[in-house]
Simulated scan of single mutants.
Amino acid sequence: MTLETLFATLIPTYLVLIAYGIVRGRRRQLPSQVRLGSAIVMVLIPPVGILLALYATGDAALIARWSVVALAMFVAGIGAALLTEFTARRMS
């Protein structure tokens, strides 16, 4: 499996799991502070893990190419969490 295929599989799965986690937290009627904390953890851990794995390789070219993708993944995760929270609030 190439790195491109891995990211093409990982990023949509990451975004779906964020949306699922937000909706599940609202469905369980968790307090807003708990939902916010879990959303931060869901959004933050995978990109940080990817960045750490990239830095562990020590390959400067690989880090330069794929760290931008990991940071974009983080931004997309924040957007997905905000949009899901907004939409879930309107639908319930």
Rank of each mutant, 00 (worst) to 15 (best):
T9K: 13
L10Y: 03
I11L: 14
P12A: 05
Y14H: 12
L15W: 00
L15S: 08
L15D: 07
V16F: 07
V16H: 08
A19Q: 15
Y20M: 13
Y20G: 11
G21S: 13
G21L: 03
G21A: 08
I22G: 04
I22F: 06
R24G: 10
R24I: 02
R28G: 04
L30P: 02
P31I: 05
S32L: 14
Q33D: 14
Q33L: 11
R35G: 06
L36R: 10
G37S: 03
S38K: 02
S38Y: 05
A39H: 01
I40Y: 06
I40T: 03
V41I: 14
V41K: 05
M42S: 13
L44T: 15
L44S: 15
L44N: 06
I45M: 09
I45Q: 01
P46G: 03
P46M: 07
P47C: 03
V48G: 06
G49S: 13
I50P: 01
I50D: 04
L52Q: 07
A53T: 14
A53K: 02
A56Q: 12
T57W: 02
A60T: 14
A60S: 14
A61D: 15
L62E: 11
L62Y: 03
L62K: 11
I63H: 00
I63E: 13
A64R: 14
A64G: 06
R65A: 14
S67Y: 03
V68Y: 04
V69C: 05
A72S: 12
A76N: 04
G77T: 02
A80S: 12
L82R: 02
L82F: 13
T84L: 01
E85Q: 11
A88N: 03
A88P: 01
R89G: 07
M91D: 12
M91E: 14
